[in-house]
Design a protein around this nucleic acid. Structure first.
Lengths: 152, 152
DNA sequence: CCCGATAGTTGAATTTATTCAAGCATAAAG
DNA sequence: CTTTATGCTTGAATAAATTCAACTATCGGG
């Protein structure tokens, strides 16, 4: 474990505090990484599948092009990814009214269910976290409450 | 963003608190995921490479078999992974005294440098975190200080 | 010394991921 | 109404990841 966040006696700068906080989070991440691998395996999803699945929606139909941009890949790769999900019945291609060139992608009901189940599984706290006392967890929650504000 | 950690008026159970905390961390994770992808790309490492690199050491020579076990793959896959790192001069295979069947793997000096640089880059806090006030970061650090204890 | 188990490599096969060039249909601009 | 640009798909090529079967070398017990 790396002590990038080794505490010194003098008061820490903001950058140092951020580095400490991130190190604490990141190291916990690494330590609990296998759990998430196992979840994906249980769902029969590759990392790519889950990335795609999580960025899709049942409401907001997204064009192939915008998906390729969001996934930082070329259009041809997006076609391939969507093909795989479509073959499994998780997504559906739709024509769009104004422009017959573009195709949009939405989650099917199976896709919605899969995404919800995956999300729930991934949000299940790693067992390591349950070793922390209730009081300490409360402190963490209160402190971390400032995080969500950042995520647009 | 999922409100698995929606606060209710009654006092939360430990499990609920853990779920909230993990959701806060996990969502932050997801939101800052691209940054880590870019770091790997900058280093010219695949996710597999970095996983392998991070589990290796210059001090503790590990046998191919134990590496395969640690990486949850078969021996043949471990051979392939180590081959790739070896071709790049990051690791070195060594014979072991007692048993001429086993080969151990250690980081070369280049491997040590690469691992250190990668570690440093990955421990660099995401810019989003710097939007949090110094006081709030301090609170996070103090609260999260209970985490490292868990990581054997 | 032989024999079965063990450690690792090799080769073939498959899946996942990615990029590039070519092509097709449609749209938009002149 | 031709030309050019756009959105997507297809096909080929390649790299990354993974598994399986076969093989080599070595170890350890009888």
């Amino acid at each position: 474990m790396y002590n990038y966040y080794m505490v010194s006696t003098r008061s820490a700068t903001k950058a140092e505090l951020a580095a400490e906080v991130w190190s604490q989070i990141f190291d916990f991440l690494v330590a609990t990484h296998e759990q998430r691998d196992r979840i994906l395996e249980r769902f029969g999803l590759t990392p790519g599948d889950s990335k795609a699945l999580m960025h899709l929606d049942s409401e907001m139909a997204q064009s192939m092009g915008s998906l390729a941009a969001a996934w930082s890949c070329d259009a041809s790769n997006a076609t391939w990814m969507v093909d795989r999900l479509e073959q499994r019945g998780l997504v559906e291609r739709r024509a769009v009214a104004g422009d017959r060139r573009v195709k949009t992608v939405v989650l099917t009901s199976e896709g919605i269910a899969m995404k919800a189940a995956l999300n729930e599984a991934l949000h299940e706290p790693p067992p390591e976290l349950l070793q922390v006392s209730r009081a300490d967890l409360g402190a963490m929650r209160d402190a971390l409450a400032k995080l969500p504000e950042l995520l647009h």
